[in-house]
Amino acid sequence: MNVHHSTNSLETPESRGAQSGVKPVENVIDCDIQELYYGTFKAVRDTRIPIEKNAITAFIGPSGCGKSTVLRCLNRMNDLVRGFRFQGHVLFLGQDIYAPAVDPVEVRRHIGMVFQQPNPFAMSIYKNVAYGLKLNGYKGNRDELVEQALRRAALWDEVKDKLHKSGLSLSGGQQQRLCIARAIATEPAVLLMDEPCSALDPIATRKIEELMLQLKERYSIAIVTHNLQQAGRVADKTGFLYVDTSQGGRTGYLVEFGETERIFKDPQEAHTKEYIRGEFS
C-alpha cells in the first residue's frame, strides 16, 4: 500500500463533493457520543464535536471531564480498555469508524495520535519514525519519508547527524517532536494530541505550539489541553467539557462548542463563563 494515497480507500461522497467546491466547511470527523461507559461507569454523555479540516480543534475543561476519553474515541484507542462501551457514532470522512466491518487497527493508521508523555520506542530515531512505514509494508524510499517527517516536525536539524542514536537519548521536547514525526510519517488525515505539552517546559511547549500551527496546513488536529492559554493561542475551534455529578457519578459532557475567540470572549453557558474567568482572574 502506498502511504501517500492511503486515505483513498475511505473516500466518501462528502469528500468528493468538496473537490468540486460544493461544501465550504469540511469536517474530517463528526463525533457524536451519546453514552460512553467503562464497565458500569458512565464516563461521557451527549457530546458532539466536529473536527474541521486543516484546523485545530481544542478540548478544554476541568480534570476528569472526559476530554481525553472523547479524544481516544476518535481513533478507537478506547477499544484497548476493558469494559469500554459506546453508543453513538464517529464519522471519519462520512464513514462510521465504529461500524462492525471496520477494523480499529485500520482506523488508527488514518488517525494518528500523540500522547501526554513523550513515548518514543527504545530504538533509534530513524527506526522510530520509520515504524509506521514498516507496519504498512512501505517498499519505497524510506530515508526520504523519514527526513520529510522529521523536517515537518521541526526536528531534522537537531537530529540529522545522529539518526541511529536511541530515541530515548533526546530531551523531553525533542522526544515529543519525534513522536509527532513518527505520527505524521504515514500521512494520517487527522492528528490527535492528548495534552502533548503537559510534560514539557515552556520553551519546548512554545516550539510544539508553533509546530502545530504549521502542521494544520497539511493535517487536521484535535488537541486536549488543560492549559487555557494554549487553547487560546493555537485553536480555531474550542469545545468546553464539564463534569456532571448530578446522577451520583462523574459523567463528562460537552457544554459549549464554537470559535475559540467566541468561547473565550463571549461564553454563552454559565459553566464556561466560570471556568474561563476562573482561569484568567
Binding site: 482506523v107 488508527r108 513515548n119 507496519l135 504515514t186
Partner: peptide
C-alpha cells in the same frame, strides 16, 4: 511501559506487531 505499547497501537499496529516490534 504501557505508554510505549500504546504508541505502537496508536500507529495502527496489531497486537502481534506490537509484541514483536516493541
Amino acid at each position: 511501559p504501557r505508554r510505549m505499547k500504546e504508541a505502537s497501537y496508536g500507529m495502527g499496529a496489531t497486537s502481534t506487531q506490537t509484541m514483536l516490534n516493541v
